[in-house]
Design a binder for these strands. Sequence first.
DNA 1: ATTAGGG
DNA 2: CCCTAAT
Length: 359
Amino acid sequence: MHTVTLEALAFIFLPSRVLLPSTAGPRAAAAAAMEAGASSGTGSFPAEDGEIWVPVLSDPLDGGSNSPTQAEIEVYSAYLDYDAMDFQAVLEGPQDEHDIEKLFGGARSPTYIKEANLTHEIECEFYSPTSDHGMIQTLAPASPETKEIRGRRRSAPATALPEKEEAPVTMALGGGGEEDKKRKGGGKGHPLPCHRRSMRLALAATPLEEGACATFIVDLLDYMPKSGWRHRSRVRSARKRGIWSLNTEQTFLLPNHLGDMSSTCKGKKCGHRKNNDHWTYEEMKKLVDALYISGVGNWTKLKHENFSRSVRTSMNLKDKWRNLKKAYTGNAKKRILPTLDKDCVEKIQKLASKMKLHL
DNA sequence: ATTAGGG
DNA sequence: CCCTAAT
């Protein structure tokens, strides 16, 4: 599962020692998750292509609760083809260049890897069976070299960007402090229930730097009032100026509210787009294939059966179909068409004409 | 609660 | 993606 990313990003690596605590490994986590019914997979690992499971430490702030938490992570890469073992290897973490090349050099040339500024964009969906706390704990080591950092929250409260350079990550992440308090108000530290939340993160690391270890970086793009690329550019440039660079060895936690926009920004008050992600070829193909089999409509069912772990909502699916249909129907003008293969396009057109008949 | 359609 | 009317 890969997607073309237009923005060049830094290569980031996962600090296995933190993400993979003593007891559990990816497989264990996967097994546990499946047992818990969190996955609709058939028992294979990963449940779906490009999907990996990693254990997430329980929230230390959660009144001592040690409830297990899992994070479902889908990995997208514009450059690499992985298989399950690769993922596991990544998680268990080679930490030097040699290993990286060994891991990723198969399909692509190591040189390419090095020069490509690979981006690992991961989609995380946190499930907290009991505590509702989904937290990833990791080290945020000094990594001034961390060039471009990116990860994207699904959505966030519109908060001004912190102005301080070197602002501790935790502070940056806690940008919406007021909101946070409100939501937790009176709850004795217990957050509002949220069994599932998702967020997009990017792993950034400088594996080639000595002493450098992976860092988990949350992109603060979405803290900005979003309205177009200008804002994004501003953020990007701010990032270039080092505003978001991590500069301490502190351990930081991804705050609970991160990625939990469901409670923050559900209403229409928050007029931000919730999902600016472009559909990938795989997604479109998957959608078309599914529609071709089960027919157009029943979006909710479609969502649950074919896109259960995707960020796409049933409405997203519906809208996407409509757009695809529009794109490949009628006069083939100079439109910006998604690059779908012939087979896929054919299905779209067949479906479209079939629907016409039924009108 | 979902869906179809327009915006 | 959002919103709304209709179901």
